[in-house]
């Protein structure tokens, strides 16, 4: 398991460097790149150099993959979660609900999401209008199917 944890630490450090060098790069894409590269190195190590059995190597790779997914979950949560926004706002001291709204306005959140959707190629923003691209329509359709599968309210 030590090799998996060392690989995770390497992926996190490489990712931290990459997002600082290429600031405009999507953070998830950046982690998929660094995490994938380190994962490949881990596969080579487990096959060529380690004295692990096949099962031990598979376990190390699975632990590494799970840890990477957990890290992606953690940093996407930090960047976009409403709950995390509340926590960080309150880290500066007690606030009323009105002050919380002022600190991190919902309108700004919508604008940020629109920009991110545009960067992901899901919408086109031009002259104050928003046009959903085919990719955006496919994504919306996929999530509609998921909503029905999970039984969420329409």
């Amino acid at each position: 398991m030590a090799s998996a944890l060392l690989a995770l630490a390497s992926a996190v450090i490489l990712h931290a460097c990459l997002v600082r060098v290429a600031g405009s790069l999507n953070k998830v894409v950046a982690f998929l790149a660094t995490g994938g590269l380190v994962g490949l190195a881990l596969v080579v190590y487990e096959i060529a150099w380690s004295a692990h059995t096949t099962l031990e190597s598979l376990a190390a790779l699975a632990v590494y993959a799970a840890a990477c997914e957990l890290y992606i979950f953690a940093f996407t949560l930090v960047v976009s979660s409403v709950s995390v926004a509340v926590l960080t706002a309150l880290a500066g001291g007690p606030l009323s609900e009105d002050a919380l709204e002022h600190h991190d306005s919902s309108r700004a959140m919508v604008e940020t999401r629109l920009e991110r959707l545009a960067m992901a190629g899901c919408v086109d923003l031009r002259d104050g209008v928003c046009l959903v691209t085919p990719r955006g329509r496919a994504l919306a359709g996929a999530f509609e199917r998921l909503r029905r599968t999970f039984g969420h309210a329409p």
């Binding site: 990712h15 931290a16 997002v19 600031g23 953070k27 940093f75 960047v79 926004a85 999401r113």
Partner: peptide
């Protein structure tokens, strides 16, 4: 770590 100032 991810170089992200908190945003919404």
């Amino acid at each position: 770590l991810v170089g992200a100032p908190r945003c919404g």
